[in-house]
Design a protein around this nucleic acid. Structure first.
Lengths: 221, 221
DNA sequence: GAATACTAGATTGTATACAATTTCTATAAA
DNA sequence: TTTATAGAAATTGTATACAATCTAGTATTC
């Protein structure tokens, strides 16, 4: 993917993660192409890549739509995150160097600042970056590749099923996880990570009949 | 991906897995397009998808090449397979139904027949299908998606670093794993699966200076 | 008035033309 | 002989034109 496509890719992805583009909203190729001053060709390439990452859903002859994960899909995302992040944080405990741990600490601090200032979306973004940093520290590129996609999808899932009060415990959890990693306490780091993810998931309201939101947003577009 | 692209995708993928196309070989868009009687457009789409799956490497302005995994990349693949398949086989033990277990048994039997008849490539293919079936039984679509790609890459890795004597123990292992699953013995099934993957990896010759094969094959194309 | 069929517009899918880049080769200079 | 260079060929990248499909609105029929 060249620099032009990369820019389009990042802009669209950020727009989805920052909730400028809502689940089920159609991404019309021509509109995007015009707004970037390019032809439909690179836009189509980007949309295909996003669909491979499950952030958009392409329906043949109909178009590309921002993903609106079902409850089952959301649960799959969290389950896979627990599996991958449990292993990743263990490996991070074993493999990290001074530079890594310094960066991780900075990220926790920055996240705390954002939350204190009431920047909800930015805090959520930093939260994801914290998890991704651990994936990077684990030293196997698949952790990063897979978790980048899963964490991106988590943003969308929270925007669908979240209550809007996600800022509560997460940054404290991150601080605890950071300390466990710093002490190279694998068992503790894994436990804290898995519990953390389970708590985030448990704060979503899957119980209510939210399948409606699918068609509802569809009507609004 | 529509039916036309799907066909091209499957043909190219099978050609790589069956070693008709060698690592580092260039996949020229026009040649493929002509051979399928289509334009370059759908071929380009397919090549991009294969590059997401890491089966093909696209270099800007140069083209698409069959992946030639480095030793480090190969080790990443096996590590990630152990992590995912360990969890998948545990979940399979808990979740399988009668239909699943029947299909799995059939696959082991078919693999045994292929090996007995000396069909090396077919046996290897069936071996991969056995692992994929377990991923399917685990009931989380990410197991299947991720392992489909990782197992495909494993074929290429074995073609690069294998000794050609991979047929030895694998099918016996599969039979043992099948029995463990059938008895819903999670711990045993996980242990057998991880050991099985470690043995396959240990039978590759990473030690020798095989980075040469990269440039060597490059010269031949 | 409700249901259906049809037309027009919008959108995606594919092929093709052209531009940009790389690769190869032949020629000339050291 | 080797190296450097120029130009031709091959290949990829992008834009555009056209085909196929879907969507929506309108007219028509019952």
């Amino acid at each position: 993917m060249n620099s032009k496509e990369l820019e389009i890719y990042q802009k669209i992805k950020q727009a989805i993660l920052h909730r400028k583009l809502f689940p089920n909203m159609q991404l019309v190729e021509k509109e995007i192409a015009d707004s970037f001053g390019v032809s439909r060709t690179p836009v189509r390439n980007v949309l295909r890549r996003l669909s491979y990452e499950r952030l958009v859903k392409i329906i043949e002859n109909k178009g590309a739509f921002v993903t609106c994960s079902s409850i089952e899909e959301a649960k799959e995302v969290f389950e896979m995150r627990r599996i991958l992040e449990a292993e990743a944080v263990r490996k991070a405990c074993r493999l990290y160097n001074q530079e890594h741990i310094q960066e991780l600490e900075n990220m926790v601090q920055e996240e705390l600042r954002e939350i204190e200032q009431g920047n909800y979306i930015e805090g959520l973004q930093m939260s994801g970056n914290f998890h991704l940093k651990i994936a990077e520290m684990a030293g196997n590129s698949y952790f990063y590749q897979y978790l980048e996609d899963l964490i991106s999808l988590t943003y969308v899932i929270i925007s669908i099923y979240g209550r809007g009060d996600e800022r509560n415990g997460t940054c404290c959890h991150h601080l605890e996880i950071f300390h466990a990693i710093n002490e190279r306490n694998e068992d503790l780091a894994e436990k804290l990570t898995v519990d953390h993810l389970k708590e985030i998931e448990s704060n979503l309201h899957f119980s209510e009949n939210l399948q409606l939101s699918t068609s509802l947003i569809e009507l609004l577009t």
